[in-house]
Design a protein around this nucleic acid. Structure first.
Ligand SMILES: [Mn+2]
Ligand SMILES: [Mn+2]
Ligand SMILES: [Zn+2]
Ligand SMILES: [Zn+2]
Lengths: 119, 119
DNA sequence: AAAACTTTTGCAACCGAGTTGCAAACTTAC
DNA sequence: GTAAGTTTGCAACTCGGTTGCAAAAGTTTT
């Protein structure tokens, strides 16, 4: 199962959600897929994105990724097609927090129209 | 009802979710509160924040706020107390999107430990 | 004041994403 | 082979959000 899920993940150009993953199979259990994603995430094979769509989306991490703050990138969520893109070249800026606030992670999602839907 | 909800909202130092709002009343219906928040949001009295906690949070907009991209600010979600702060002084940076991608809005949530939980 | 109309509210039901316990199926180690 | 550990499928459940609908409350018109 994990191999199949990994397969699907590598084929994706945009981040995928659990319900979407479910549909890709038609024969696998939600719980299994759910646990698979959790396992992958724990082992930093994938990262999750809260794009505000109501469901978490997941995408493969890059080889060198340690999921640490400085490796975080911006995500783009298209209002039209609903797809969520990894903007791997756009690092998440680290804003100057007020005194006493400690940065540990961040979720930066830009919304708009993707290049595919634009035309 | 709306007046009461507005009252609660003005008293909040951090953003509040629908379930939290529900608890503040003990006698009002979820649906009513839900619709109240929606109405407020439509009229740009409040803005919503996807902090990844599983529930949307809401906070009053500032007077001059038009909820447009340039007025967006960063939010901070504390991993310990779960509170979500409006960082009104930290504008959301507008990253250089690749060709064809059109910016329309953004959700930038920084996670970590808040100054209150830090000590 | 009563009637007619509009808006707000409460209730109940529903949906969808996520999550969990548990037993069956499968894999690996002896 | 059996025993031990791991993965899977099923069912049940939680929780946030959402909706239809009819009752209640508020407004306007006569
Ligand atoms: Mn990504
Ligand atoms: Mn805010
Ligand atoms: Zn698109
Ligand atoms: Zn805190």
């Amino acid at each position: 199962m994990r191999q199949l899920v990994l397969q699907v993940l590598t084929e994706q150009k945009t981040a995928i959600s659990l319900p979407e993953l479910e549909q890709k199979f038609e024969k696998a259990d939600k719980a299994t897929l759910y646990r698979t994603l959790k396992t992958f995430e724990e082992h930093q094979l994938i990262h999750s994105i809260e794009d505000g769509s109501g469901s978490l989306r997941y995408a493969l991490c890059e080889d060198f990724c340690t999921c640490e703050p400085e490796h975080l990138h911006v995500h783009f969520s298209c209002n039209k097609c609903g797809k969520t893109y990894c903007m791997k070249d756009l690092p998440v800026p680290q804003p100057d927090l007020p005194n006493g606030f400690e940065f540990s992670s961040a979720n930066f999602v830009v919304k708009g129209i993707c290049s595919n839907c634009k035309k």
